[in-house]
Design a binder for these strands. Structure first.
Lengths: 181, 181
DNA sequence: TGGTTATGTCAACAGGTGTTGGCCTACAGT
DNA sequence: ACTGTAGGCCAACACCTGTTGACATAACCA
């Protein structure tokens, strides 16, 4: 065989992730993705059923939050901000969810799921009052996602120009306060 | 005459703002907008030239930042956060820019313009070091836009559930620190 | 009353979209 | 050598998009 089906599936998925990340759901066309992967559009349908199926496969993402029990309590904020910056820059998944979640309800739902399921428990483990945990997780999400939005999507010049250390220095205390009062 | 052209233009613009705000640029079709306004799609072209022209008219927006010289320096953060919440909930313009700016470069450029031109000078007037002003304005943008994103677009449940006072209480000190160290 | 103009509709265009089914064709197993 | 099959392509479908130009009709002015 010229190529194994797994290779082709992987090539399609890689192309899809790039297109969804840079163009959003509607502007990322199956024809463009197939062209990037070097195959016919009908192959996309064969392997992923339809556009939604392809998107579901491409938008798979995990925050991979670090174990914060290992770090001193006062360093939680800075550690988390640094982790988010790393995660963001090494995986397109977050970019896909942000670009598509704004106009696509399915993607928005997935984003809600990721943040409540992963940031919520983390906040619960850190805080004293378990009732406040969801609010604390939500506040953290606003700051972290806002940074991602301004830096990687909207590209506000001063935010793009900031160094990694600057960002950790400014946002760290904010997240620290949101999570630990 | 059955209707003055100004009335029709206004009806089209109102429908367009709603569609752009809720659907984003690509999914807000001229046909749907025209249908909402109760006229034929071709009227949209007559009055606004093309879809981009209509969008330019619909995405007109001003932050209307308050004069912060009047409020005590330590209340700047809370005042600003409260103002943003008001502005956001009373005007669809911000929603339009956020929903479209994520996938439409023109809208992103407009957003950059609004925040650098309006938040920048405000930060410069408040801070001591004028060199730091753009960074401070950028940081404020990340927190304020992040809140807007999570509360009004992604609708993260704990963020939606928060009251106006809670938000001001949590985000006020953050913005205060970003702007006045 | 007649004519001009402003407001509006209709039908069609050219192109792009997701999606489908039939048809190749090169390889693997026998 | 023959056959079955997995990987891939092609052409077409039905629909939707922005956009255009020709045509209708009501209201005003002379």
């Amino acid at each position: 065989m010229r190529r194994t089906s797994e290779d082709t599936k992987a090539a399609i998925l890689a192309a899809a992730r790039e297109r969804f990340a840079s163009d959003g759901y509607e502007r990322a066309t199956i024809r463009a993705i197939a062209s990037d992967a070097g195959i016919d559009p009908s192959m996309v349908m064969r392997y992923y059923g339809n556009k939604d199926g392809l998107f579901a496969a491409a938008a798979d993402f995990d925050l991979r939050l670090p174990d914060l029990e290992a770090v001193p309590r006062e360093a939680v904020g800075r550690t988390l901000v640094a982790h988010f910056l790393d995660r963001w820059e090494s995986d397109e998944g977050m970019m896909i969810l942000l670009r598509t979640g704004v106009t696509n309800e399915g993607a928005a739902e997935r984003m809600r799921g990721i943040f409540t399921a992963q940031l919520g428990p983390l906040a619960a483990r850190l805080g004293t009052d378990p009732v406040q945990a969801p609010v604390r997780a939500g506040l953290t999400a606003t700051q972290v996602l806002g940074m991602a939005l301004c830096r990687y999507v909207l590209r506000l010049p001063p935010v793009v120009a900031m160094s990694r250390e600057e960002i950790v220095g400014w946002l760290g205390p904010t997240v620290q306060r949101y999570l630990t009062d």
